[in-house]
Each structure stands twice: as C-alpha cells, then as structure tokens.
Amino acid sequence: MATKAVCVLKGDGPVQGIINFEQKESNGPVKVWGSIKGLTEGLHGFHVHEFGDNTAGCTSAGPHFNPLSRKHGGPKDEERHVGDLGNVTADKDGVADVSIEDSVISLSGDHCIIGRTLVVHEKADDLGKGGNEESTKTGNAGSRLACGVIGIAQ
C-alpha cells in the first residue's frame, strides 16, 4: 500500500500549488496538507474528481469521485461524495494553506484517490446545502481553477 501521495495543481491562470497526502494505516485517516497560491481571497471548493484525465484541462477530470452514488455534502457529513473535501481558505495575498484530515478518502482500496484528479474551484462549496439540484452534485463551487493528478510519492 502506498502511504504517501502528492498532487501538483496547475491551471490556465495564476492558480498553482502542491498538496501532499499521507496515510499511516490502511483504514486510518489521510492527512492532506500543502499550499495553493494565486486564488482570490475567501473560500474555494476542494474536491477529488473521478478521473485522472487532464487532456482537456480540468474539465476532463469528470464529476466528483463518488463510488457510493451519494449526494454532495461537506467533509463531516454522512451523506457526501468520497471526493468531497470541503473548502480551502485563501488569505488576502491569495494563498491557501491547506491542513485537512479526512477519514473517507484513502490511498488504497475502494476509496483510493491515487490516479484521480484534485481540483480547486472558483467559488465556495455550499456543502450540499444550497437548496438546488446543482448543490447536491457540485456544491455550486463554480469553474475549475486548477487541477492535477494525484500520484504515489516516496
């Protein structure tokens, strides 16, 4: 089992970053940390998408990683996509320092995120509470600013 993974985020604009993942036990939580720069100040949706395909930019990554066919939600919700990591918060300089621990994603097994795409979005994720159909699919997080395929790390 891989215990570490990394993702280099890039987009068409100024947004870029490096996100690290570490899972010490196969059924334990995954620590997610790193930094994203070039964002507007505020909240930005942060999700693992189904495919590791960036051939047409971030759009070819498909929908959120959702092997259990659930509705979109927040990272602490029972009803959520596996890939729903909530929001990252950018400061006035456009930098989001990421520090998350998640017990639904994994670096092995059915919820493995390796080979899938991590995406940072234009807007805040409403965590499935926006009151419309799009909220239950995407959290109304808007366009995909930057993305990268999650790969095994040393």
Rank of each mutant, 00 (worst) to 15 (best):
H64S: 07
P75D: 07
Q16M: 15
R116N: 03
S60A: 13
I18L: 06
G94D: 05
N66C: 09
V119Y: 02
S35Q: 15
I18H: 03
G13R: 08
G11S: 13
A124C: 11
S99K: 14
S103W: 05
K71E: 09
K4V: 11
V104Y: 15
H81D: 07
G139I: 04
I105K: 01
G139D: 05
G83A: 10
A90Y: 02
L107N: 04
V88P: 00
R80E: 04
G131Q: 03
S69Y: 07
V120N: 00
S106Y: 01
K4E: 09
V88W: 01
C147W: 13
V30L: 07
S99C: 11
G57S: 06
R116Y: 04
V6N: 15
D84T: 06
F51T: 05
R116E: 01
G139P: 05
L39E: 00
N27F: 04
R70W: 10
L127V: 12
L145F: 13
G11A: 08
V6H: 10
S99M: 11
G42N: 02
V120T: 02
H44P: 01
K137S: 15
E78V: 12
G17Y: 02
G62A: 12
C7Y: 01
L85D: 00
L118I: 04
V82H: 04
S108N: 08
L68I: 10
V15H: 01
D91F: 05
L118C: 05
G148H: 00
N66P: 06
G42Q: 01
T3K: 15
C112R: 07
I150C: 01
H44G: 01
S69E: 15
E41C: 11
L43I: 02
G13M: 03
A5G: 07
L145C: 08
I113C: 04
V119A: 12
H64W: 03
L127Y: 07
D97G: 10
V104E: 14
R70S: 07
D97E: 15
G151R: 14
N20V: 05
K37C: 10
S35A: 09
G34W: 03
R116W: 07
V8C: 14
T117M: 13
K71V: 06
P29V: 03
E41G: 05
G73N: 03
N140G: 10
C147D: 05
G42M: 01
I105W: 03
D126L: 07
H44Q: 04
H121F: 13
T89S: 14
V149E: 05
I152N: 08
E78P: 04
G38Y: 01
G128W: 03
F21T: 01
V119H: 01
N87F: 14
A90K: 00
C147Y: 10
H72M: 07
S69Q: 15
K37W: 13
Q16F: 15
G34D: 02
K24V: 07
R80G: 06
H44T: 01
C112W: 04
D12G: 10
V8R: 13
R116Q: 07
D102Y: 04
L39R: 00
N66A: 05
G52I: 05
C7D: 05
C112S: 13
N140P: 05
D110Q: 09
S26E: 02
K76Y: 13
E41F: 00
W33V: 15
G38H: 05
L43C: 07
D126I: 05
V98K: 00
E41P: 15
D102V: 09
A146I: 08
K4I: 14
D93L: 13
I19H: 00
Q23D: 02
T3G: 12
